[in-house]
Design a protein around this nucleic acid. Sequence first.
DNA 1: TATTGTTATACTCTATAACTATA
DNA 2: TATAGTTATAGAGTATAACAATA
Lengths: 173, 173
Amino acid sequence: MTVSKTAEKFSEKPADAAKGRKDAGEPQTEALQLGELSEQLGYVLKRAQLKVFENFLRCMSSLQLTPAQFSVLLLVEKNPGRNQTEIASTLGILRPNFVAMLDNLESRDLCARIRSTNDRRSHILVLTDKGKAVLARAKKLVATKHEARLNDLLGQSNREALLTMLAKIANEF
Amino acid sequence: MTVSKTAEKFSEKPADAAKGRKDAGEPQTEALQLGELSEQLGYVLKRAQLKVFENFLRCMSSLQLTPAQFSVLLLVEKNPGRNQTEIASTLGILRPNFVAMLDNLESRDLCARIRSTNDRRSHILVLTDKGKAVLARAKKLVATKHEARLNDLLGQSNREALLTMLAKIANEF
DNA sequence: TATTGTTATACTCTATAACTATA
DNA sequence: TATAGTTATAGAGTATAACAATA
């Protein structure tokens, strides 16, 4: 099984270097200094992203949806009638890599490929009824478990400010 | 060549779906709606992280340092005399995966493994003179090209607020 | 000739088990 | 017995080239 493995993936936690020490002789077991590293935006950004994805996977474990799969379902729901190239490209997924992803979602009866009548090369993407139901449940889980926890941690206004700045980086950097 | 390839890696840009369309018949070529996706912190976080790493690689192309390699050099400089397990663990790198990374840095004469006299199982890590010089140049490039551009985009105080919130997520989420 | 979906393939990252040499 | 470094390996994620069907 491929998806359940994913949920176990982010196990290696940082800053645990000083744990498994034999404090027999001289207990020189001091935590390392991060120094300038904690000021590097890229470093902190990556760490935060891993934490957020890790929490997302935990919240979604009952539905077995990864962040990437969730984003595909959201985008197909919002843009019915688009083909694989359009959906994949919008998400920054390369067309060849999108095939296996769709195979997975389609095999679970969450979405379907429909040969376009206008252009018989294209596969139009739609959510199945089950796909719509699962996505609805996923949205609720994300809102009540995942995003809610972020609100608790940062506060509503800070969370919005964070989103604004990240979007600015993603779009203009 | 392994490192130069890395600099070419982040080519797939999102939201370009509507480019290669044949606007002959009905130009129904409309950009897709991101919808709720643009409110998902995980999605925006990931996109921003990719952009920041991409820019980092460009700024560092003359030194051929990846974000991960830069973080190792920074941490070894700040914590001389620590062994591989401690450095790797602090960075969230698994010990087996750290071996090839160190092989690379050592083959480029940027750092060195020294067998510890206290515990002959351990390899103490230190920067070579060349490693110190390269790191100094890397810091300057990061400050003047990379972080400076983030300051231009966000403003100094916003950039600090962003860093604070991301650190909070990385440490407490 | 160009584009859509697809296959094959390769490279990087990340993860686990097991070996060796030391302790 | 346990730990540090290492090897081997496997799985995701991401990248490119090329093919068949269709335009």
